[in-house]
Simulated assay, not measured.
Amino acid sequence: MIDAHHHLWDLSAVSYPWLMAEGVARFFGDPTPIQRDYLLSAFRNDAATEGITASVHIQVGAADGMAEARWVQSVADANADWPMAQVVFCDLTACDLGDTLDAFQNLSTVRGVRQIVGRAPGEDAVTGTNGLLDDSRFAQGLREAGRRGLSFDLQLIPELMEKTARVLERAPDTQIALCHAGSPHDRSPQGLRDWADKMRRLSSLPQVTCKLSGLGMFQHNWTQDDVRPIIETCLEQFGPERCMFGSNFPVDSLYSDYATLVTAHRSTVPKGMHDQVFHGTASRFYAL
């Protein structure tokens, strides 16, 4: 099994300003319990007992994206028995994009890049990251990433899906991993119907693969019955060959332990789809 979306951090090695901010409420909850090192050894303790044998590290808001990427590379080099790829932060609108991507691609673990388009409505209004969709340099950067064989991890909210699909159509050769099932933040019946309708625009694009991850961030007291319709909708729209499991640990450790998370996904995904969702899709997408 592969966990296609998790984070690690060593607070003495890399700076994470968002993580260490005190008294700052975030859309995913109070970060206080995770304001401590989360190293590969801790992740393996969580994941290996559930059958996970490889993983994908996703950038997580370091002050210096290159420093984070080099640290993750050093962790992977020191733990050759644990196959791990990584997705790095890169500003696709930067004037020195080519040089930056050259540097990232010198690291053997790098498979893709992420630049968050949307987190949650309230936070997006402050950060202004939604504006990337109106920046022609962003679409150009997506094309450049794809030209180099790099994927793009897309985090956004349902309200941005139609606009994002139009941007992605301008970079058809770039493989896209849709983080957290498109962040269905409104869990009311009508909210889930609206999310499912908007998702069809993205699922219609063959380059987009969906991550079943981060489902606790907008419903902290979730149960399997709560996440079932989300997982089932993703499987119906994308198919198992374009869906992959991710824990979003340690962020989602705020809401459940690893075993509970895996059990909820395993029990909801039909057994005939397990090989793809828990291994094959991520293995192909991230070349693990």
Rank of each mutant, 00 (worst) to 15 (best):
R26V: 09
V60P: 00
P250E: 05
L168F: 00
A171F: 04
D124L: 06
S12F: 10
D10Y: 09
G191Q: 06
V75Q: 04
S267C: 14
H185S: 11
E144G: 01
L168G: 03
F138H: 02
L154G: 01
A42G: 07
D226C: 11
G214T: 00
R228A: 15
S108C: 04
P172D: 06
V56L: 11
I34K: 04
P270D: 07
S253A: 15
S108R: 06
A165N: 09
L192E: 06
T53F: 14
C234G: 04
D30R: 04
D275F: 13
F152A: 02
H279Q: 13
V167N: 04
T53R: 14
I116T: 12
S74D: 09
A282D: 00
K163M: 13
L97A: 07
M66Q: 10
V88S: 01
G122D: 11
G61W: 08
R114I: 02
T174K: 00
A62Q: 04
V56R: 03
D226K: 09
D46G: 03
S74I: 12
V117E: 03
V269I: 10
L8H: 01
F138Q: 02
A67Q: 13
L11E: 05
D252G: 06
R193P: 00
R119T: 15
R26W: 12
F249S: 08
T260C: 13
A94C: 11
T109L: 02
L212M: 08
P229N: 08
L178T: 05
L132C: 07
P121S: 09
L205A: 03
S188C: 10
E144H: 01
D173N: 14
P250S: 08
D226T: 13
D64I: 09
E236W: 12
K163Q: 15
L11C: 07
M161L: 12
W71V: 14
F43S: 02
E236G: 10
K163R: 15
T233K: 06
N248K: 05
S267Y: 13
Q155T: 10
D102I: 08
A94R: 10
V56T: 07
S253D: 13
F43V: 04
K211L: 05
G149H: 06
G23S: 10
G141L: 00
T32N: 08
F285W: 12
A42I: 00
W9N: 05
D10T: 02
L92V: 02
A165E: 09
L192T: 05
K163Y: 12
Q276I: 11
R26C: 12
I116P: 01
D275L: 14
N45P: 00
I230S: 08
T93Q: 13
R200Q: 15
R242G: 02
M199V: 09
A196L: 09
V277T: 04
L8E: 00
G191M: 06
A78I: 11
H6G: 07
Y255K: 12
S283N: 15
V24I: 14
Q86K: 01
Q35T: 05
L156T: 11
Q155D: 07
H274K: 05
D257Q: 10
P206S: 11
E123N: 10
L8F: 03
V277L: 06
P250I: 05
H5T: 05
R201W: 14
D197W: 11
A103M: 07
G122K: 10
Q237W: 03
T93N: 10
Q59N: 12
G118D: 04
